[in-house]
């Protein structure tokens, strides 16, 4: 397998597909030699990113598609999730105060915070009406 190989799956924007994408990413991460705790972190980060796409970019419209691509080079493993929905403005993002959110009975809003904690690098971009979040873990 060439180190520049990339793999992709396209799935409907449905929460039913979260486990499919988790399995896809977990299986590849495992072949790249990551230990269990790194695999758990990658799996969770990807789940959080895809959940945000389904919820915010597509607002639960299951007719839309989520594009998941992954690959690695000599030093890094990366997963990119693309969508054609509403853009996420990372500039406006504020780190959540979990204790305050609990007081307000909020059901979450901590996904981006987790992704940033779990991965080594997180990049957002928008090109040709597609949003991309690219998450990288060092090998």
């Amino acid at each position: 397998m060439a180190s520049s190989d990339t793999y992709r799956i396209d799935v409907p924007a449905s929460t039913q597909q979260l486990s499919v994408v988790r399995d896809f990413v977990t299986n590849h991460a495992r072949t790249y030699g990551f230990g269990e705790s790194d695999i758990e972190e990658i799996r969770l980060a990807v789940d959080e990113a895809m959940t945000n796409v389904i919820k915010h970019a597509y607002q639960y419209d299951e007719s839309k598609t989520v594009y998941v691509t992954l690959g690695k080079n000599k030093t890094e493993f990366w997963v990119a999730i693309q969508d054609s929905g509403e853009a996420f403005d990372i500039e406006k993002y504020q780190e959540p105060d979990v204790s305050e959110r609990i007081k307000q009975r909020k059901k979450g809003g901590v996904g981006v915070f987790l992704i940033r904690k779990l991965m080594d690098k997180v990049e957002y971009s928008r090109k040709n009406s597609h949003n991309e979040i690219r998450m990288t873990k060092n090998l």
Binding site: D47, K107, G108, V110, G111
Partner: peptide, 17 residues
């Protein structure tokens, strides 16, 4: 075996009540 923040969210939403 697994939890994401959507799962934690359930506990966040109801603990105060």
């Amino acid at each position: 075996d697994y939890i994401s923040s959507a799962g934690l969210g359930v506990f966040m939403a109801y603990i105060e009540d």
